[in-house]
C-alpha cells in the first residue's frame, strides 16, 4: 500500500493522540477506552451491514459470548472451580498474582476470539439462509435468546452474573492497562478491515450487497465469503467483549454482556450516522456519537433513551447516507468517484 505523506501524517497524528490521551485526561480513561470499543463496534458492524448488506441486529451476541468465555477462563486459570465460585454469588474474592492475572487474561482473550469465530461459523451456516428483514430479526432473536438463556444458566452465575478476578495492582494502572488493550485492538481492527477491503474479498462482499442473486449466478462462493466476514467481525467483537468484562469487573447477562437495545443498537446507529459502507464512516460516526453521548447523557435526566430512539428514527428516515455518504454525494470527485466518462485513452472498440 502506498500512502501519501499527508495520509501518513494523519495516521501518525491519530496514533499520537491515542497514546497521549489517557495521560492528558487521566479522569476519563474509561470513557476514552470506550471510544475505541465503540469504533470497533461500528467498524465490525459495517463489515456485515454496510459492506455486505447483511444488517445484523444481533452482533452484540459475540461481544457477550467473548465476555463470558474470557471471564470463565480467567477464573479457571486462577485455580478456582467455576461452578463452585458462582454458587457463592461473589462471596469468594479471587486473589491472583500479576503472572496469574496476565496469563489468565491473555488465554481468556485468545479463547474468546476463537470461540466467537467458531460461533460465527456455526451460526453463519444457520442464519445466512435468512435474507433481508428475516436476517435482521433472526440475529436479534439469537442475541436476545442468548441473554435470556445465559440468565438461567447457573454455571456462569445465571441472572446474578459473575465477578472476574481482581486486578492485583492500583486502579489507575488497571485503567491504563485496559485503555492500552482497547486502543491497539481498535487500530488492529481498522488496519485489518482496511486491508481486507482492498483485496478481492472486499469487492466480493460488495457484490453480495448489491445483488446477491447475481453474485451467486456468477459463481461466487457466497456462503464462504459471508461466513468469513462474520467470523472476522466476531473475532474482534469477542476480544472486545473479554476486555470490556474486565473493565467493568462484573459480567451480567442482560445489561453488560448482551445489551441488545443499548450497545447492540448503538453499533448500527454509529455506522449509519457516519456513513455505512465506507471505511472511515463508522469511525467518524462512533466518535461523534460517543462524544455527544458522553457529554449530554447525564444531563438529560432519563430522557436520553427517548432521544436515542428519536436519533435512530431521524438518522434512518432523513439522513440514511450518513455524514460521509452525504459528503460523497456533495463532493464525489474528492472521494475518487467519477461522474463523467473520460475521453482520454483508448478509442471505443
Amino acid at each position: 500500500m502506498n500512502l501519501s505523506p499527508k495520509t501518513l501524517a494523519a495516521y501518525a497524528a491519530i496514533l499520537v493522540c491515542g497514546i497521549v490521551a489517557p495521560f492528558l485526561f487521566p479522569n476519563y480513561t474509561f470513557q476514552l477506552a470506550m471510544l475505541w470499543i465503540m469504533i470497533l463496534f461500528a467498524l465490525t458492524w459495517d463489515t456485515m451491514g454496510g459492506q455486505m448488506g447483511y444488517n445484523s441486529l444481533g452482533n452484540i451476541f459475540f461481544f457477550g459470548a467473548g465476555m463470558y468465555i474470557c471471564a470463565v477462563v480467567q477464573i479457571a486459570w486462577a485455580g478456582y472451580d467455576v461452578a463452585e465460585y458462582t454458587a457463592h454469588f461473589g462471596a469468594v474474592k479471587i486473589e491472583v498474582t500479576y503472572a496469574q492475572y496476565y496469563g489468565g487474561l491473555m488465554v481468556g482473550l485468545i479463547l474468546a476470539a476463537l470461540g466467537c469465530v467458531l460461533f460465527a461459523i456455526v451460526f453463519g451456516h444457520i442464519v445466512f439462509g435468512l435474507r433481508g428483514p428475516y436476517f435482521a430479526i433472526g440475529t436479534l432473536g439469537v442475541a436476545l435468546a442468548a441473554g435470556e438463556l445465559v440468565g438461567t444458566w447457573d454455571y456462569v452465575g445465571g441472572g446474578g452474573g459473575i465477578t472476574v478476578p481482581f486486578y492485583p495492582g492500583e486502579p489507575d494502572a488497571r485503567s491504563l492497562l485496559y485503555y492500552f488493550l482497547c486502543f491497539p485492538l481498535a487500530i488492529a481492527t481498522f488496519s485489518f478491515l482496511k486491508w481486507l477491503y482492498s483485496t478481492r474479498f472486499g469487492l466480493a462482499i460488495n457484490a453480495i450487497r448489491d445483488d446477491e442473486e447475481k453474485a451467486e449466478g456468477m459463481g461466487i462462493h457466497t456462503l464462504r465469503y459471508k461466513t468469513i466476514a462474520w467470523a472476522s467481525s466476531a473475532f474482534f467483537l469477542g476480544i472486545s467483549g473479554g476486555i470490556f468484562g474486565n473493565m467493568v469487573g462484573f459480567v451480567e447477562p442482560l445489561e453488560v454482556a448482551f445489551p441488545t437495545v443499548t450497545f447492540g443498537i448503538f453499533m448500527v446507529v454509529m455506522a449509519l450516522l457516519g456513513g455505512k459502507g465506507t471505511l472511515w464512516g463508522p469511525v467518524l460516526g462512533a466518535t461523534v456519537f460517543h462524544i455527544i453521548k458522553e457529554t449530554t447523557w447525564t444531563y438529560m435526566l432519563g430522557w436520553q433513551w427517548v432521544a436515542l430512539g428519536a436519533l435512530i428514527i431521524i438518522n434512518i428516515v432523513f439522513f440514511q447516507q450518513g455524514i460521509l455518504g452525504w459528503a460523497q454525494e456533495k463532493w464525489p470527485e474528492r472521494f475518487g468517484i467519477k461522474v463523467e466518462g473520460d475521453d482520454s485513452g483508448r478509442e471505443a472498440g
Binding site: 430479526i137 437495545v261 443498537i265 430522557w303 433513551w305 430512539g309 434512518i316
Partner: peptide, 19 residues
C-alpha cells in the same frame, strides 16, 4: 425504501415509545 429501513425506523420508534 429497502426493508431494513422500515425495520430499523420502527425499532427506533419502539425504543422511543417504551422509554
Amino acid at each position: 425504501r429497502d426493508m431494513f429501513t422500515s425495520l430499523l425506523a420502527t425499532f427506533g420508534l419502539a425504543i422511543l415509545l417504551q422509554q
